[in-house]
Simulated scan of single mutants.
Amino acid sequence: MALPYRQGLFLIRKGYFQLTLRSYAKKIGKVGGAGAQKARMEVETDAQKLLTHCCGANIFLEGSDPEIKPDQEYPEWLWSLRTERGGQDLAELDPNTSAYWKRLSNLTSQRNARVSKRLLKLNAIQHPEDALS
């Protein structure tokens, strides 16, 4: 039975014996090759068009960018979306929901990661001889 081991290597296990084989298959380059280049969009500099159109929103080759409508034509929930970074505070969530406990778990794991990173740095400062070996 052959199992993927590493890129280009295969590990074969049969009972107590194992054999590592190297694959010499031809490597395939990136799709599109070296000749493919990203299409660069032109930056709009017309101030009036920037105020009235959503520039860069047109994903088709033909057509133009959509016009920005008045605020009354958009749904009410659009204006209550959270735009700041980070998640909700725990004080805003109800403790009887799964969202509260998921957020609490996420915050706890982030705090534990920060503490363990600081402890590793502190240990390296206090015991520099251990870091060399």
Rank of each mutant, 00 (worst) to 15 (best):
L3M: 08
H127N: 09
S105Y: 09
S116C: 04
P95A: 00
L122F: 13
L61A: 01
P4N: 14
K102M: 08
N96L: 15
K49D: 07
Q72W: 09
M1A: 11
E44F: 07
D65K: 01
I28N: 11
G15C: 15
S133D: 09
A39P: 03
R103I: 06
A124N: 13
M1W: 08
L90M: 11
A124V: 04
W79D: 09
R103F: 06
P70F: 15
E62F: 07
Q18E: 10
A2C: 07
L132C: 01
E84S: 15
F17E: 12
S23D: 13
K49T: 02
D130R: 12
S109H: 10
V43L: 01
D94S: 12
S109P: 12
R103T: 12
F60K: 08
L61D: 04
H127C: 03
F10K: 06
A99D: 15
T20F: 05
R114Q: 14
R118H: 09
E62A: 02
K117P: 06
Y16K: 03
L107P: 10
N106P: 00
E42F: 02
G15I: 14
Q37G: 06
E67A: 05
A39C: 07
R40N: 05
K121Y: 02
L81H: 08
E67L: 12
K38C: 02
M41W: 10
